[in-house]
Nucleic acid binder design. Structure first.
Length: 828
RNA sequence: GCCCCCAUAGCCCAAUGGCAGAGGCAGACGACUUAAAAUCGUUCCAGUGUGGGUUCGAGUCCCACUGGGGGCACCA
């Protein structure tokens, strides 16, 4: 007897999960490689994960949202390619290897298997035939091929320079990997080191990378666009040549304010530049000693100290003089650490009156200040605040009386005429440092030969496979562990055949991820990086989904690669990702989850407790996707309740499959079709939370119909429930499939098409019209949808509330928006 | 310091310039139950951060401010 009472009134979500997984393995609904497929294409891409441990809540959000989009387009009749792979090279594998004495390779591949199993259980709609792993030789040989293509074009080059060095990771870092002077990965303070390193000439594409952001306006989050613009940082100005006393060549400086040239009262050269060393070499021993001491101190300080803007200005007078080309004045040349060696020319003209940094320097070291722009602001010498506003030029010869803009163009004209300068632009963006002194990455395909120099490895010798980690000392020591692989390093020179050595550095893993979206097109090809034919069919990516953490690095590099590949003729487009969605982070109690903070929510625990469907639904329903989700604010249990509601709905339907819906209850049919009208728009605009809310509304309406006088046998109940099952499958595919089966269909709700709304069911015959007086609501009235202005006026005349409100007032105006609104305006 | 985004009920969030509430969470009450859970139903709750402006009408558009978040930052 108890058995009867305890009969389950809801679904066993875990049994349902286990039931459908093997069915789907068989059905393979997300395979996209059928050549005969006539559906239009859609390339939906999730940023591929780094295989460290198991999936976490962040992955769960990203893949839930990416899945909504991919599954939606399938149900709209598209052939959707939704691939997955692993960004499998990188430091964590190596660090785990060092710490736990594991092979980085084994560690990585084990983690990939863990990921794969979790993605399957999370019901990700991936095309499992297109898997890539960047640590597979079949993948990274194409990194090497691309490197050589770049090399041929002069886009890959080696130079000695001061580079960012992480003392903890014991490797160089790209500019983009230094955040606030610290290593992005381990937070150690980054230092500078002079090293010979490989670079990609991304600066050659700076203009295009900046200008083409225009094409992405409205298709990428504006935040990402502005971050990229900031990062590239183009400025316009002029290069000005200053003749130097006792030196044949002039010193060229870059300035954005050539209008203030008359106010340049001294010059400053970056202390760590070659130019500074050269200038002082001709000075007195005292100066040389002072310079050396200052230089040593600068080198000792790190970027965090050096970048502190409130630090007092320091410097050394070189004792040398330059000639101001505007007025012929001799001005002293100083060296200082506030001028950067690798921006512009490493030397500046100092205009202390109109530049705060120069003014600080002038005041600290007693240098003259000359006002050349009258801005109406207080005297900068007295206030210590440089006047940077608009104004009229003074003390500036031919420029006197001009505005800033006019003075800039006139000065540039004069300089160009006299051969002392020219218009110029500069970028904050630096070339991309790609070599790393670590093991677990793509070997750089260059051989160093004593007689031939740098020799590119011939294509037919690719891939250069990594030597086995066995026997290698992977511990960071500042030089690549590959140097210890004797047999691997020592090779005959491909050019002359004499003994030579391989380059022992490996590539930055951002190289791997700069083109992976193309590799998915032909993931197993041994003859090309990607099929040009497939690329013209599938690429560019229609929809990219990933975290905003990659707003600069990865997206900029991928855009760069795409433009290079376009120039090389391998692709026919210039932007890789047509549309971008950045999902927010998953937080717990207001802050990022971490073990050390003690607020870590484990995805595995959540799945064990609520099931994949409820977690996925919670991710979609939590709010706008780009906002952060605080796990403390959302309710996976609530999602579970909704899913049970859906299940009971399907369970209660008592209409045979294939019934003619047209005889169904009109009210519910209208609800179903207005859902169909709105749902697609919501999903296409990434308003997943609103889409789920609409779905809940439809479930509520169907429930009401079943429980009310219409009952479970009405055809409209089946229509509504089938639409619920299809729409639900974007969020909670297990339950949707279960419902689909309960409704009498064969497995594969993911492939069932979402119909268009029937327009005939969207027309309403009446609506609630609003009667306002002076903009305030006074009454409402049911009117026909084709009510005229006169009908509204009549309704207002007939309304006691309206008449009361206008009583004794003079009507000045009547605004009518038939059929829904009338506003009677009275004299105030 | 410069640039960008956000602010609606106790909470998460909706709302083509036209009735502030679609949905959910939490709460309260009721039905079912010996009881509880589950379920179903009903219900309480803000005038939209502050101050101006535009408009017949502003959560929505404009300006300023406050608070929160983010990006860049000695880039000449």
């Amino acid at each position: 007897m108890n058995e009867i009472r305890n009969e389950p009134t809801g679904p066993d979500v875990f049994a349902i999960q286990e039931k459908w997984l093997p069915v789907w393995d068989e059905l393979r609904p997300f395979a996209s490689g059928n050549k005969d497929d006539i559906r239009p294409k859609k390339y939906v891409l999730d940023m591929f994960p780094y295989p460290s441990g198991d999936l976490h809540m962040g992955h769960a959000e990203a893949y839930a949202l990416g899945d909504v989009i991919a599954r939606y387009w399938i149900q709209k009749g598209y052939n959707v390619m939704h691939p997955i792979g692993w960004d499998a090279f990188g430091l964590p594998a190596e660090n785990a290897a060092i710490k736990r004495k594991l092979d980085p390779k084994a560690w990585t591949y084990d983690n990939i298997e863990i990921h794969k199993a979790s993605m399957r259980r999370y019901a990700c709609s991936f095309d499992w035939d297109r898997i890539i792993r960047t640590c597979d030789p079949i993948y990274y040989r194409w990194n090497q091929w691309l490197f050589l293509e770049f090399y041929k074009k002069g886009l890959a080059y080696r130079k000695n320079s001061m580079v960012n060095w992480c003392p903890s990771c014991q490797t160089v870092l790209a500019n983009e990997q230094v955040v606030g002077g610290a290593c992005e990965r381990c937070d150690s303070v980054v230092t500078k080191k002079a090293l010979t390193q490989w670079f990609f000439r991304v600066t050659e594409y700076a203009d295009r990378l900046l200008d083409d952001l225009e094409l992405l306006e409205c298709a990428w989050p504006s935040k990402v666009l502005s971050m990229q613009r900031n990062w590239i940082g183009r400025s316009y100005g002029a290069e000005v040549d200053f003749a130097v006393d006792g030196r044949t060549e002039p010193i060229t400086v870059y300035t954005t304010r050539p209008d203030t040239l008359y106010g340049a009262t001294f010059m400053v050269v970056a202390v760590d530049s070659d130019l500074a060393a050269e200038l002082v070499s001709g000075s007195t021993p005292e100066v040389r000693m002072q310079f050396q001491a200052y230089l040593d101190e600068t080198k000792k300080s790190n970027d965090i100290e050096r970048m502190a803007t409130d630090r007092a200005k320091t410097g050394v007078d070189t004792g040398r003089f330059a000639v101001n080309p505007a007025n012929g004045e001799l001005i002293p040349i100083w060296v200082s650490d506030y001028v950067l060696a690798d921006y512009g020319t490493g030397a500046i003209m100092a205009v202390p009156a109109h530049d705060q940094r120069d003014l600080d320097f002038a005041r600290a070291l007693g240098l003259p200040v000359r006002v050349v722009v009258e801005t109406g602001e207080a005297d900068s010498v007295e206030t210590g605040v440089a006047t940077v506003g608009e104004g009229v030029l003074v003390n500036s010869g031919a420029l006197n009386g001009l505005s800033k803009v006019d003075a800039i163009s006139k000065m540039v004209g004069i300089l160009e005429e006299e051969g002392k300068g020219k218009a110029a632009k500069n970028f904050r963006l630096r070339d991309w440092l790609i070599s790393r002194q670590r093991y677990w990455g793509t070997p750089i395909p260059i051989v160093h030969c004593e007689s031939c120099g740098e020799v590119p490895v011939p294509q037919d010798q690719l891939p250069i496979e990594l030597p086995s980690a066995e026997g290698l000392d992977l511990a960071p020591k500042g030089t690549s562990p590959l140097g210890g692989a004797e047999e691997w390093v020592n090779v005959p020179c491909p050019s002359c055949g004499k003994p030579a050595k391989r380059d022992t550095d490996t590539m930055d893993t951002f190289v791997d991820s700069s083109w992976y979206f193309l590799r998915y097109l032909s993931p197993n090809s041994e003859t090309e990086a990607f099929s040009k034919e497939e690329a013209s069919k599938w690429a560019p990516v229609d929809q990219y989904v990933g975290g905003v953490t990659h707003a600069i690095l990865h997206l900029l590099y991928a855009r760069f690669f795409t433009k290079v590949l376009q120039d090389l003729g391998y692709v026919d487009f210039g932007e890789p990702f047509t549309r971008l969605l950045n999902q927010g982070m998953v937080l717990m109690n207001g802050s990022a989850m971490s073990k050390s903070r003690g607020n870590l929510v484990k995805l595995g625990d959540q799945l064990d407790e609520h099931g994949a469907d409820a977690i996925r639904l919670t991710m979609a329903f939590a709010g706008p996707p780009e906002d952060d989700i605080d796990w403390a604010d959302v309710s996976p249990a609530g999602s579970g309740k909704f899913l049970a509601r859906c299940w009971r709905l399907a369970n209660d339907v008592d209409v045979r499959v294939g019934v003619d819906f047209s005889k169904g209850n009109l009210e519910l049919r209208k609800a179903t079709h207005s859902f169909l009208r709105d749902f697609g728009t919501n999903i296409e605009n990434f308003k997943f939370n609103v889409g789920v809310a609409k779905l809940m509304e439809l479930v509520n309406a169907a429930r009401k119909t079943i429980d009310g006088s219409v009952g479970p046998t009405d055809p409209a109940v089946r229509e509504a429930t089938e639409i619920v099952a299809k729409a639900l499958s974007l969020f909670s595919p297990f339950m949707a499939e279960e419902m689909w089966e309960m409704l009498g269909h064969k497995p594969g709700v993911a492939l069932a098409l979402l119909p268009e709304a029937d327009p005939a069911l969207l027309v309403e015959s009446t609506l609630t019209a609003v009667l306002q007086v002076d903009g305030k609501l006074r009454d409402t009235v049911e009117l026909s949808v084709d009510a005229t202005d006169a009908d509204l006026q009549a309704a207002a005349d007939a309304s006691a509330a309206v008449q009361r409100a206008i009583e004794g007032r003079e009507i000045t105006k009547v605004i009518v928006r038939a059929p829904k609104l009338i506003n009677i305006v009275t004299k105030q």
